[in-house]
Nucleic acid binder design. Sequence first.
DNA 1: AGACTTTCTGAAAACGTTTACTTGGCGCCG
DNA 2: CGGCGCCAAGTAAACGTTTTCAGAAAGTCT
Lengths: 342, 342
Amino acid sequence: MAATIKDVARRARVSIASVSRTLNNSSSVTPNVRARVLRAASRLHYTPHAGARSLIIRRTHTIGLLLPDIHGEYFSELIRGVDRAARARGLHLLVSSTHGNNAEAAEALRSMNGRVDGLLMMSPYIGGASLEDALPSGLPTVLMNTHEAAGIGAAFVVDDFGGARAMTAHLVAAGYQDIAHIRGPANDFQSLERVRGYRAGLGAGRVARVIDGDFTEGSGYLAGRVLAASGTRPQAVFAANDMMAIGCLFALTEAGVRVPHDIALAGFDDIPLARFVSPPLTTVRVEVAEMGRRALESLIVAIADPDAAGRSSVETVPVELVVRASCGAHSGGRARCKEAGD
Amino acid sequence: MAATIKDVARRARVSIASVSRTLNNSSSVTPNVRARVLRAASRLHYTPHAGARSLIIRRTHTIGLLLPDIHGEYFSELIRGVDRAARARGLHLLVSSTHGNNAEAAEALRSMNGRVDGLLMMSPYIGGASLEDALPSGLPTVLMNTHEAAGIGAAFVVDDFGGARAMTAHLVAAGYQDIAHIRGPANDFQSLERVRGYRAGLGAGRVARVIDGDFTEGSGYLAGRVLAASGTRPQAVFAANDMMAIGCLFALTEAGVRVPHDIALAGFDDIPLARFVSPPLTTVRVEVAEMGRRALESLIVAIADPDAAGRSSVETVPVELVVRASCGAHSGGRARCKEAGD
DNA sequence: AGACTTTCTGAAAACGTTTACTTGGCGCCG
DNA sequence: CGGCGCCAAGTAAACGTTTTCAGAAAGTCT
């Protein structure tokens, strides 16, 4: 159906080589030939077949983006950062999500081979077959938040441990004795790091109290219900991500437990939503869009210089404590506390 | 670097045809040959080159997704809907954003030719060159919320007019006389439809009051500031999308104007965030993920049956009024009623 | 005016697959 | 015992490009 370069050549009464040359103005062609080709191409609505083209020039101008999920504000932000950087470079994005399933991830990897110039992957999932051998060999790859970071290529990992420790320490410093933690899934690298940070931040005297969750709002809600009904309600709750913190906030509010008056609350990630809930959520800011941008830049240099790709540098992405009203330790004591406005 | 089918063939001492046959188990091969091929393939870490493969089988198992932007909850939801449906069908997604720039869109379209089996496009931008002739001919396409919907293929358009009219009518029925509208950008199809719906919903007696915006939270904030400072403050504000409504809400709250007590507020889209702000936002629900899913399904049938693609059916996606506290007309009459939903 | 250089164009190979066609070996039946 | 069909495996064409190489035409210099 679609016109090929042959059709254009035939119509312009030239060889396909001349068509190619005019369209890429690679080497000089006679004005006459050029005009004929251009006219034929536009008449036929000719659009080069990018697949065939990339087969021979060995460049697709596409990079693969493999994420555990593409839903939610966290990944949306990440994609945004990657997309901006990619578009600035004239690159396209082939996205895929693995849903924590390593077999699916391997399958996605296979089908990306020959379709992308490089790969940006985030795979915090732990367990199952290693990803390393599923990776098409020779494909430049940059990892994000992946525990197998070493040995593949460049990698960026968020300072989950440091952030969680700092947040816990902050709550401790604010005077809370009994601080609970709603954790993420057990097979998630970041989740583990945050638990570790929480434990480290508690210090020696305090006892850890960890509630299971899975990073979803629903699991946070459940945890909140349990906490509200519990006889031994903690003084503060630190959720391993913002969505769980928000779910928890809803459960608490519903149960008549006021945040931060009755219980302090904190999250992790600083998703855009965090500042919109009431009270605004104290959290740990992760510049996830920025991480995406940097990861892409790093991938680009790895693509340009495949030899140096061996140096597997792991870069830590810093995080920042964002203190808002929900933890009760807010400096200014903002007037916009909505929980009183019933 | 990466091994090709030839390398496998050489190592297994068979022809490349036999390799292909074993790997796709298309026709029967001797157990002996089969074993040799499999062993060689795994030894060499062979992964088929998807680009070359799709060149000859004329199928990429990828669909292109072209959106004005990929940022924000609205598009995130849309992508989610498309992604789920695509992954259920074993398809990949090649995403691109146009940022309201039709030239960029045309460029993106060109480079998608030969890389995708079909195209899912949302292009509410009005003006500039028509998209119709930028479309690679013969590429199955499904449009969403695009004013040029006719003549290209199947299309889905949200009932922006109906939703806006219903919302305005709701505010009128709630007793508000003076209802302002914060509109979206002037060159956006949906934006225009919503203004039109607003005007229709006002009815005969009332006078329209339209404030300019551009669908961003910032523009809503500005509008809110203007309104709060205005001597003739309206009784209700209907923003053309939720993000502007939320920006407006912040400006109003900051200026000490209470919502809904002093002024009613409503948005459009029902993004996830809408129910989290306080007061929860009255809005018009658009099942945007569902639209994405349906659009993809529709695209799949168009791909499978390219002949019938000519029937350019335009399907209207229904919307639904979601009344929460921010418009002051909530059933219970009090602001604290929490709207259920997920 | 002849040889040499320059410039443009076309033929053909290459990219990595799939697949139609061909070959050759083997058993079966007449 | 010879032809016939069958089946496995190999050869080569095809997909739509880019690019190298060679050839031809034209211009330039002595």
